[in-house]
């Protein structure tokens, strides 16, 4: 029967891991705003750094021509 004790101990450890990650999420303010991130994730990442955005500008002007 001792195997079930090990199993329960392991399952509790896993559960405690989730509890800790929940506490971390609350403390870092991830539950303070439950709307904006849902919009933010849909934005394209246009401005990674200056060089890529410059490329985009070129593409844009090419399209116009």
């Amino acid at each position: 029967m001792s195997v079930i004790i090990i199993l329960i101990a392991v399952s509790l450890l896993v559960a405690i891991g989730f509890l800790i990650s929940f506490l971390w999420a609350v403390k870092t303010g991830q539950y303070d705003d439950d709307y904006t991130p849902s919009v933010r994730i849909l934005f394209d990442n246009e401005f990674k750094d200056e060089s890529t955005s410059a490329n985009e500008k070129n593409i844009h002007s090419n399209n116009n021509n």
């Binding site: 303070d32 709307y35 904006t36 919009v39 933010r40």
Partner: peptide, 27 residues
């Protein structure tokens, strides 16, 4: 609207001194 969020979070393009901007839409 979402455009507002987008513009304000990319506000460093308008003012280069801005390091980061983050919107809370509900508030």
């Amino acid at each position: 609207c979402s455009s507002c969020i987008w513009l304000l979070e990319n506000f460093k393009r308008v003012d280069a001194g801005v390091i980061q901007s983050k919107v809370n839409f509900i508030r």
